[in-house]
Design a protein around this nucleic acid. Sequence first.
DNA 1: GCCATCACCC
Length: 534
Amino acid sequence: MPMSLPSPCSPLSEFLPSPSLSNHAVFLNNTRKLSCHKFSGLKLVFIPAASLPTTKSYPPETTVLQSPILGKKEQRLYPKEGEELKGLPMKEEEQESLDFDEKDSKFQVSDLLNAVKALPCKERVDHIVRVLDKEIGVLSISDFNDVLMALVTANESDLVLKLYSGLTCYSLEPNSWTFTIMVRCHCKKKDPSEAKRVLDQMMLKGFNPNVATLTTLINSFCKIGQLQNAFQVFEVMDRIGCKPNIQTYNCLLKGMCYVGRIEEAFELMEDIKKTVEPDIYTYTAMMDGFCKVGRSDEAMELLNEAMEMGLAPNVVTFNTLFDGYAKEGRPLKGFGVLKLMKQKKCMPDYISYSTLLHGLLLWGKVLAGLRIFKEMEGNGLEADDKLMNSLVRGLCRKSMKEIDLVEVAYQMFEKMKKRGFVIEHSTYALAIQALCVANKVDDAFINLLQMVRLGYIPRLIAINNVIRALCLGGKVDEAFYVLVLMYENSKIPSRMSYDLVIHELNRQERTLSACNVYGAALVRGVVPHKKPRR
DNA sequence: GCCATCACCC
C-alpha cells in the first residue's frame, strides 16, 4: 500500500525515526564539511564598548562592529578624540533607550544602512566592511533586519545573535522578517531546536511563517537526523495552511535517506510524484540515498528514469554515482558514468574527478587512477594537497604488492615535495613503508629523518620498519641513529626497536655497543628480550 | 525578501 504524505490526519508515527536507527553506516559517510562561503574572509567581531580605547564613554551594553581585516588602526567605528561625529542626529527616544553616559554622543549606522539597502544582498557585507569605520546608529527595524540578513548571509551568526539580543536596547520590536532571519540564523548554526523556539515565539506574536522559513527549519532538523522534529514542523505547516513545495519534500526525502530509511524514502518519492512534480533534486537525493547504502544500480535506474522524464542531470547527480560505485567497490563503473556525463554535456568538476580517483585508489585500481589524474590535470583541474597525498598513498599501498610500481610512487612523492605540496604524516608513513618493502632502505631512512625534521613524530611501527630494514642491510649505526632521534623527540622506542638493534649488533659481534643499547633501553624503562651476546 | 543536491579520512 502506498504511503501517503504526512498530514495531521495520518499517524505521524509512520514517519518518525525508529528508536534504534537501523543503518548506522549511513552516518559514517555523513561528516560533511562546511563549504567556504564567499564572505568567509570577513570577520566581524564585537568589542564591548567598555573596553574601547577612547576617552569617550559608551553605555556598557553597547557594542560596536570592528573588522580585523580592516587592519589599519585608523579604520574604526568610534571617533577619534575630539573628532566631529558624522551622521543624522539621534532621535530623542533612541537617546533615551541607549542611555548614553554622554547624551551628546551620536552613534549612527544610518549612512551605512542606507548604502547597504541600495545594494543587492550578496554585496551588502562587503559594503559594511568598507564603511564600518563610520559610526553606527540604528533607525528602524527594517534597517536592522537588513543588517541582520546581510550578516546571516555572510555566515556571521554569532554577530547576528549579539545584534538581536541588543534589539530592545534600541527600542525596536522584532517583526515577521526579523523572526524569519533569526530562524535562518539558528539553522545555519545547526541549532534547529533554538530555531524552533524562535518560530514558536514568532507564531505566538501572531506572525505566520511561510514555506521558505519552514523548509529551512525542516531541512535543519533533517540534516542532524531529527526526523521526528522535522515532521513536527511539517505538521505545523499543514496546520497553518502553508503548502509544502518540492523543496520541502526533497528535504524530508533526504532526511529519511540520511537515517537509513531508504524504503520509506522511496515510497515518499512515489507519493511526491503524485502530489508535486519531482525535480532533479528529488532524484539526486534519492539516488544518493541508494548509493550510500550500496545500491548504486538502483540509483542508476533512477537516473535513467529522470532522464526519460526530461530532467537534466547535473554534475551533482553524476558525482553521487561516482561515490556510490566507489564505496560499493565497483569504482570502474565510474568510467561509464564519466562517459554518460560527457554525452549529456555535463562537465566533470573537481569533485567528479577526485571522487572517482579516490574510489579507484581505494580499490587498488592505481593505473586507472593515474589515467584519471592525468585527464583531470588535462582539464585544467589542479589536484590539491589532499588529493595528491591520497594519490601517492594509493600508489604506495599498491606498490607494496606490485614492486614495479614503487618507482612511479616514489617519483610522484618526490614531485610533490618539489612542487611544494604539504605531505601528510600518513603519506610519509606509507611512503617509508613502501620503501622498506621495496628494500630501498636508504630512501626510507632519509624520509624518516625528513618527516621528523618537519615536526612529525613517526609511529612506532614506522620506526621499527625502518630499523628492521636498516638492520637487515647491516646498517646498524643508522638504526641506532633512529633510536637517538626518537629520544630527541621524546618518543620512547619499543622493546622491538631495541631487540632489532641489539640483535644486529650481536650478529656483527659489537658486544660493547649492544651493551650500551641494552643499558639505554633499561634507563628508559624498556627491558629488551635480546641480551648482548657475551 | 529567506528554502533543497555531491567527494577526500590517513
